[in-house]
Simulated scan of single mutants.
Amino acid sequence: MAEAVRLGSAAQGTTAPNPNVGCVIVGADGAIIARGATAPGGRPHAEAIALAEAGERARGATLVTTLEPCNHRSQRGPACTDLILESGIARVIAALEDPDPRTHGEGLARLRAAGVAVELGTGAEESRESMAGWLLRQKLGRPRITLKLALSIDGKIALPSGESKWITGEDARAHVHLERAHHDMILVGRGTLQADSPRLDVRLPGLEERSPRRALLSRGEAVAGWEMLRAPEDVFRLHDVNDLLVEGGSATATAFLAADLVDRILLYRAPIIIGEGRQSVGYIGLDAIGDAHGRWVARDGRSLGIDRLEVYERVREG
């Protein structure tokens, strides 16, 4: 399952509107026969790719997947449950049940009814994290939204003049590009567009083609080459985006935080003190310190060269 999770995680940011599933097929000796991950654009599915690679070797083997195989037929491709039954796979291990109502347990039920041994739950936590964007969109009807902030020790994002290039070092900036590669869309505000003319692409060797779609948060005129969001709540119409990265300035960060639409924060903290300068976030509707507690939990922290990365997730009920 660890290899299946790795394969699925590597595909994050390329498979929307479908989930980034990983799959491996294991022979009787425990060796991996074939591997698959959901293809860019969502088809073929991970199971279909792995089964095609395995061919006749799939007969009697075990299929390990991060998500229940789909059970609904589509014009874009066959149901993975049908392919598994045709292949002669003897056992299926799935980490998560598919929340899509077109499958939601029916795929595993069909496999069991046909005599295939089925196990559910192995690697569930890791698989859930690897597909967090797609799973959240199934639940809330919008992408998982990550806010990226690059700050000084004293919480400033720029000098009073607006100069901010570069607060963080090369290692932190490289990590940002890796994060971009795992998002379907990246968003900034009009102020950032006008001040910096950002490319918002991925500039890591071998990952250049993984540059996400670009979106602009603005009530002004449309800009060629950019998708427009007039308000943070417009994220609910992004039905083909699983993971959205917000990289705008203070106004954009404030707007998304005030709307309580941020699920994850990537905070890159540089070992510098700016003093008087531009704040990272403005007023977000909190009038008492007590109201701020319990909303965020630290999930990760690590050094990136001279800088420090802190990862926080929004605590939400259910």
Rank of each mutant, 00 (worst) to 15 (best):
Q12W: 11
T15K: 01
A28S: 15
A31C: 15
I33Q: 09
R43P: 01
H45S: 10
A48T: 08
A52C: 13
G55K: 10
R59K: 15
L67E: 03
P78I: 06
D82K: 02
L85T: 03
I89Y: 07
I89P: 00
A90H: 01
R91I: 07
V92P: 09
E97K: 04
R102A: 13
T103H: 05
R110G: 09
R112W: 05
G115T: 02
A117R: 07
M131A: 01
M131K: 03
P143D: 13
I145P: 04
T146N: 07
L147E: 04
S152H: 12
I153T: 13
G155Y: 08
S164F: 04
L178W: 09
H183Y: 00
H183I: 01
A195E: 12
R199C: 09
E208F: 12
L217Y: 10
V223C: 10
V235C: 08
G248I: 13
G249I: 11
T254N: 05
D260Q: 04
V262E: 08
I265Q: 11
L267N: 14
R269T: 14
A288G: 07
A292I: 03
G294K: 06
W296H: 01
A298V: 09
D300F: 05
G305V: 01
I306C: 12
L309Y: 01
E317F: 00
